[in-house]
Design a binder for these strands. Sequence first.
RNA 1: GCGAAAGUGGCGGAAUUGGCAGACGCGCCAGAUUUAGGAUCUGGUGGGGUUACACCCGUGGGGGUUCGAGUCCCCCCUUUCGCACCA
Length: 818
Amino acid sequence: MSDRYEFEAVEQKWQRHWAETDQFRTEMLPDRPKFYILEMLPYPSGALHMGHVRNYSLGDSIARFRRMQGYNVLHPIGWDAFGLPAENAAIKNRIPPGKWTQDNIARMKRQCKRMGWAYDWSREVTTCLPEYYRWNQWFFLQMYERRLAYKKKGTVNWCRECQTVLANEQVVDGRCWRDGSQVEERELEQWYWRITEYARELLEDLDRLAGWPERVLTMQRNWIGRSEGAGIQFPIEGVADPIQVFTTRLDTIFGATFLVLAPEHELVRRWQDDPEQGPELRAFVEEMRQQDRESRIAEGGEKRGVFTGQWARNPYSGERIPIWTANFVLLEYGTGAIMAVPAHDQRDFEFARKYDLKIRVVVQSEGVPAEGELEHAVADYGVLVNSGEFTGLSSEQAQRVMGEAAREQGFGEATITYRLRDWGISRQRYWGTPIPMINCPKCGTVPVPEEDLPVLLPEAEGLELGGSPLARVPEFVNTRCPRCGGEGRRETDTMDTFVDSSWYFFRYADPHNDQLPYDPEVVRYWLPVDLYIGGIEHAVLHLIYMRFFNKVMRDLGLVKLDEPVKTLFTQGMVIKDGAKMSKSRGNTVSPDEVVEEYGADAVRLFIQFCAPPEGELEWNHQGLEGCSRFLRRLWRVAQEHRKIAPTRQGRGTDESRALLRKLHQTIEKVTQDLERMHQNTALAAIMELLNQVSVYHDGEGADRSLLQQVLETMALLMSPFAPHFAEEMWELLGQPPGTAATSSWPAFEPELAREDEIQVVVQINGKVRSRFAASPAISGEEMEARALADERVQAHTEGKTVQKVIVVPKKLVNIVVR
RNA sequence: GCGAAAGUGGCGGAAUUGGCAGACGCGCCAGAUUUAGGAUCUGGUGGGGUUACACCCGUGGGGGUUCGAGUCCCCCCUUUCGCACCA
């Protein structure tokens, strides 16, 4: 065999070895500490991209590191296999979605193995298989039984491209999160999951997620959007039911000079038949309905509205105030109706100005001009004026006292409102989990009995896809009602694919269970996930759904945990030429090609070395070459080392001591850096060590056994990052083949890492002027004396007075002179 | 508009706690080797200044705290991200 490092042969050799020995299979070992490391499962879209390579390489280095540290490591992978791309590809290429998906999985699995990632493939989970999705249906039934699943007719987000409904979380800036097309509103009957039931807990438990990035916590807090305030009822003239309004500023209610309802508000709809105001109202509502979100924003916040012709009464003051409808009040938030206080709310102020409505100051604070001279609303807290019996109270007091008063008199109370809406899970598409419900003309909506699960997705062969395909399969739709035995029709919508990813990582713990989604005892051993790595883009989608699911499963008695993921790590994007790699931009780099050219190890090294994992990574071909060069250099040193005569000795020299010291400093650094996800600096430390090793190796009197020890340790330190290379080097050094990955992580010995000489820095007025070497045992007094005796220091202090000397033990002396 | 994070050589970045700014890699320069190119090896590489030292400047800008600030505080600028008529 040549001395050259042949990555292709080496990587193949070890990949075969790992497969043959089933090295990464994991068993439950209750007496060993476990470590569950998880990366977000890929959607099988065709081929791995660099984002995957980064995500999974980072996870793999941690998995391998923890295994060597003695943890029983669970490191699984699977496929988020249901979803629209499969269906769209099927329509385009006339391939059944299942086949398209399985072909992609096969290809991506080959790529994963080619990268050398240490997965336990026996736990592979594929969400489009009945053995998995039957449990989605099972969960649905459990939720239905507990009234956490319900059917409701209402306005939904409709994506024309996808021909399906989207959840609120899947609408970004009024556009579909997948294809960026405009989202429309539609009236549909849909299944919802009552995530709002858990709004409070989902919010409060964020405080307990100490291992999550602040950024994600903030995004989730904003998404859940808690507001504290009061719900107040305003009686309407001529209508039995009052209007319910939500406000966070109850203290300003005496300044409420009109009410505003959202154009979609149910009362507004009713009033359109009114002979007088009706036509104008109808025209306005119709216009608002036509308008999409985009153009609403484009109008630049221009407020528009019409008077409904109706009047309400302020429950505190009895004042008669007009009811309007306007574009700036949103049905989705609060109750879809507001009390307008133009003096103290800028939006209300603008509206009042435009339509010449009354403006009344009711809170006096600094800088509030005389009434009539207001140029904008003043939202500050202050002291109440013009507020009947509440005049003179502070805003804070007033909110409390007035809430109390409302409750006593029965027209309102203090309430909390969330922005979070229930999770709409119905999708009018084929490639997803069928919702296990049956509609019976006699019994209504009837759940499929548990023993009849799974409700199988029918074959796609010959099926026209798009627009609720299941509704066109009579054998699927027509069934018997489980309750009365009469004719029934199946629900033809499928579930949102985010259902699949909400609990897949529980399934990894017990992937072949056919009695339950998983055995709670097994999950109790493996969960929570100790480290979860993925992109930030799921901050309010997947990462909130899975928290919700965990809490539901807890309440079903399936887990004891409140939160499923201990530490979350969000890795940065891979970019090229300043932009995210994407097919549409044409700036992608294919993992297959670079692996073929440089090998999996070099790619893994580069992608972990060249940027901090949480930051963006700019693809740089020359950087990749640098990492490949580093491997070749290390290989060369290991090769040449073998040729040194075994009798040669040189131990005891300063260089040998220095190298041993550097080795242990490197062990410490790499260990600490892997513990805090700083793969980039861990690798830099190993490179530094190699630099010192090659100088030592090429120099006089290199000690063979020391070199042997250093190189063996380096092979182990490299094992998490470049596992094939590490095994080959380990074997080259005479170690039992294939045991580097299962060896213990090198032990750091502080005595060997300790410097026997330290460099003391001498500053004058904070500027470094000199330095000297000293024993680590040097005392403060001695440091000061030596610093003051220093020639250069004397030159600088001549003719000046030493005012003060600061001594930082074992580090520095700062002499303050004037 | 509100909120958060970040701004360090030609480039990616390092500096875990307020204590030698620029580790490591890329690139570049010089040398060795080579018929040549490539590859490899050695040395150098923040700016100014000097034969060389000394010395001066330097972490977006301005101010402050401190013996000492990339790091802490205040103001400003820029960029990125999130939220955005949220009542």
